[in-house]
Write a protein that binds this DNA or RNA. Structure first.
Lengths: 205, 205
DNA sequence: TTACTCATGTAAGTAGTTACATGATTCC
DNA sequence: GGAATCATGTAACTACTTACATGAGTAA
């Protein structure tokens, strides 16, 4: 259950409301895991029942309240267990690659457009990962500051280094995928030329 | 709905029973998309209702029957629509990278083990993708032969090339991830040495 | 007769998506 | 007064997982 692990990991930085957690899921963990607020609120309730987090009602304006969730010792133990646990191999969900493997079912034109879209997406991702890695390296995110404020200085290097390595890894992967998409564009070009050359002028409209 | 698209794409090669489709999901599409037989059988029924496939009852032994599914014209149109359709950006589900970013919650020892497991997994994946690319390039899979037998020779190059490009891309990605895991091992080593050096001998057990 | 592969399903549960719904506070 | 943001939820649905269940054919 990775949503639970993501939420617990975020809460190791500092206590947060469900709303704040959804914001971080849209802004910081956004690159790693997505979850809508509906799922986050209900998961938090479940985790509270399980004793992994503890909620405190806080006033919000004059009438309403909000609930701030803090991680418990049991929650911290669960995070330690989870990071060290051997991960089971994720089941393949390679939407882009499935599509790429069946591009003969469309025109060269549209096949090329698919690879162009992939190239652009991976390049955008690459830049975002790179940027986030630099921000983390400079210890400039609010969350990173909260983390380091609570941790013994000797551990600071590791806390930063693991996160930077993660985002650099994702940036490298995105760069590889961008290159793959570019080769895809070149492949479509070659196939199109070969089809034109080896073909008597076809009776297409 | 990618499961539907995967099933339809497989059925463009030749008609198949639900059982055969699950076998291909375990052996050929295994690298791209996973689905258990329970999901495949029910999805096929739904697709039949939608007119994308047509089932024919075939005898199986003397008493029982099996159902062979063939793609319909509507199904073929759906495949063409699907491959050309702009894909919406997949929601991030980066289990491995989430874990990697929080390795400070475990020991150097166990952190290293996580990266070692990742290195081994990605290397195994890389070899499997590479192998499958070569088999496809040689047009040696049963499915590829069925595909080519039905298609005009002018299209053979594209049919093969798209699939080879897909698997080579996945192999390249796996190689990149393997390298990232190896850098992870080196990172843990460095962090451990730094911790030992900068530390008065700690009171660990 | 035992084990294996072929073959097809149901059922219960969890995870994730999308839409609906409400209300407070803050800033212009 | 209106828009944006803070804040929290429910409901319906689809996708996916895991386990249970059954039975036929084939080869040792």
């Amino acid at each position: 259950m990775s949503l639970q692990a993501c939420l617990l990991s975020l809460l190791t930085a500092r206590p947060m409301t469900g709303y704040e957690l959804t914001k971080y899921f849209d802004a910081s963990v956004e690159y790693l895991w997505h979850a809508p607020h509906s799922q986050i609120y209900s998961e938090l309730r479940r985790m509270e029942e399980a004793g992994l987090v503890k909620a405190t009602a806080l006033p919000r304006g004059e009438r309403a309240t909000k609930r701030a969730y803090a991680i418990t010792d049991a929650g911290r133990a669960e995070v330690s267990r989870w990071v060290a646990e051997p991960s089971d191999t994720p089941r393949p969900r390679e939407v882009d690659y499935v599509k790429a493997s069946y591009l003969e079912f469309t025109s060269f034109e549209l096949a090329r457009e698919q690879f162009i879209a992939l190239r652009d997406r991976h390049d955008r991702d690459r830049r975002e990962y790179e940027h986030h890695a630099r921000v983390l390296e400079a210890r400039k995110t609010e969350l990173m500051k909260a983390r380091l404020a609570d941790a013994p200085p000797l551990e600071h290097a590791a806390i930063v280094a693991y996160k930077v390595h993660t985002y650099r890894g994702l940036a490298g992967r995105a760069a590889q995928q961008k290159a793959w998409a570019e080769e895809g564009i070149a492949l479509v070009d070659r196939l199109e030329q070969a089809a034109r050359a080896g073909d008597t002028p076809p009776s297409e409209q």
